[in-house]
């Protein structure tokens, strides 16, 4: 059942491929604003790279949520899905599709941004650094959590009379812990100290969210169509 649901979500996403590219463009554009706004110096950009990339990833996940939920709710197919499968399964299939279609490309795209932000900069040109790989790891563990938490916020606001900003206001506070540990991973890597502990916490948050949030999001979907 889960596979069927996932296949449906992915098929819908493929037919709407421009809509999928938009969050990626957004991600790149937001990050590339910072050198203009702050300073194009490599040493300086390197210091803020972690936070900038993480915040941009967070916002583009948040903004891409809409297309996975809104149209299904509006044309009534969400109701049919909830009759067909358990709410938890429906929520989980949407989260999985959302991550595969936006979260994973963000992770794959991030080295380009790391390049733009001079993340691998080192005063000594002969020393190779691995900051970019560390950043990818942190995003790999962080983006699924973003999709999971976002699913709750999006599902809750489906039946609300105002949305858009509402999802952000509800969910951004919940993103604070992963943002802290996610950028702490990269900061630790920049100062050449151990970052395994922060990565482990990100992983733990992901597992915790994976167990609980599909249930909450499913409940929320159910409330929306009730």
């Amino acid at each position: 059942m889960f596979a069927t649901l996932l296949k449906r979500e992915l098929m819908l996403a493929r037919r709407n491929w421009v809509g999928i590219l938009i969050p990626l463009f957004f991600f790149v554009m937001v990050v590339s604003l910072f050198p203009f706004a702050v300073s194009p110096e490599a040493e300086f950009l390197q210091q803020i790279a972690a936070g900038v990339v993480w915040v941009a990833a967070l916002l583009s996940v948040l903004l891409s949520l809409d297309m996975f939920y809104r149209s299904d709710y509006q044309d009534g197919s969400l109701e049919q899905l909830l009759i067909m499968a358990s709410p938890t399964q429906v929520a989980l299939s949407k989260v999985t599709a959302h991550w595969l279609v936006t979260g994973l490309p963000l992770v794959l795209m991030s080295p380009v941004l790391a390049g733009l932000m001079h993340l691998n900069y080192s005063p000594d040109a002969n020393v190779a650094t691995s900051h970019t790989a560390v950043m990818m790891l942190s995003l790999l563990l962080g983006t699924p959590t973003m999709c999971l938490l976002g699913a709750i916020g999006m599902s809750l606001s489906l039946a609300a009379s105002r949305n858009g900003m509402l999802v952000a206001v509800m969910i951004l506070p919940l993103y604070v812990p992963i943002l802290i540990f996610g950028s702490a991973v990269i900061t630790a890597s920049l100062t050449n100290s151990g970052y395994n502990a922060q990565l482990a916490i990100l992983g733990a948050i992901l597992l915790f969210a994976l167990v609980l949030t599909p249930f909450a999001a499913g409940r929320a979907l159910k409330v929306a169509v009730s």
Partner: peptide, 15 residues
């Protein structure tokens, strides 16, 4: 943000 009070209650409770 809801017109329907029972939906508002249930959604806000989950949050």
């Amino acid at each position: 943000s809801f017109n329907d009070r029972s939906k508002a209650d249930n959604a806000a409770a989950i949050l």
